[in-house]
Design a protein around this nucleic acid. Sequence first.
DNA 1: GTGCAACCTGAAGTCGACTTCAGGTCAAGC
DNA 2: GCTTGACCTGAAGTCGACTTCAGGTTGCAC
Lengths: 167, 167
Amino acid sequence: MSAHAPSRHDLLTIGQLADRSGLAASALRYYEKLGLIHATRTTGNQRRYTRGTLRRIAFVRAAQRVGLSLDEARTALDRLPEHRAPSGAEWDGVAQSWQSRIDEQIVELERLKAKLTGCIGCGCLSLTRCGLYNAADRAGAAGPGARYLLTRDPATGPEPAGGDFTE
Amino acid sequence: MSAHAPSRHDLLTIGQLADRSGLAASALRYYEKLGLIHATRTTGNQRRYTRGTLRRIAFVRAAQRVGLSLDEARTALDRLPEHRAPSGAEWDGVAQSWQSRIDEQIVELERLKAKLTGCIGCGCLSLTRCGLYNAADRAGAAGPGARYLLTRDPATGPEPAGGDFTE
DNA sequence: GTGCAACCTGAAGTCGACTTCAGGTCAAGC
DNA sequence: GCTTGACCTGAAGTCGACTTCAGGTTGCAC
């Protein structure tokens, strides 16, 4: 309680935070607008960040990595208390939802990889017979507009078995 | 050589192709504009697709899954011959570059997952000491503007060890 | 006390991957 | 032969995540 109020030296300017986080200053202002991070202001209206902000940013970047939008990241961040360390339960909830997301992504990639390996291994060279052709897609890291590949329609009748990526 | 020229029944309208591929017709027109797929035209100027187009689309969607942009997908597609099955070597090149991309992505996710698990397992709840804080980022599936997380600056001097995702 | 890099703001621009719109044409079943 | 749903085009809009710009202010080293 007594030891340290954020003594001036603990505060980072936006430029310093940018350097340390690897994000551009403009991105940090953008993050602030979205409510992902917060800053105090100097009398001259310049932003000053506590070092803890680096952690919030790390959290956000990690969230992006597991496929969350910034808005979702903010929601996740909001589940954690702002002014004290998260409790085990609190952290658990967040971490576990990430785990499953990560697992899903890994599974999907493994599946795609297996199909691809099969393609080479079997030497078929024909996506008609090859798993890749029917590989499940659904969502994934692809970004907005992720829709499904040829999942629901395994062959639509026997393909003429002629082409291979060519017409 | 003789058996079948694309007899009228092998040709799909854009609507049919949309249904089967799961993409919107507008997306297919867009893909065509990018040179990812091609269509012949009826006398009335409507598009007609061969069934092989489904395979090209599958290829493109898979390419997106491994993190390629549509433009990169087109490049990859161009490495494969358009009017015959790809040779082993041709297919191999494409497939292998995908493999490594997939592997990289998996490794990254595994790493992130491990950090996260560690966080829970060790109960530290502090990203200061926790690996997540310093998790490598670099590129990845995050999309345009992917930059690096707190990689190059492991701690920037010993953190006051006070905050945990909070201010 | 002054010079200049670093900072401020709001508005607009960018990029990838599409979708939507407006206004018009085609195809095929009755 | 007519109706109606599917299709056509080019231009513009959308969404997320930022960046760039223009024009003005601050802070700190000398």
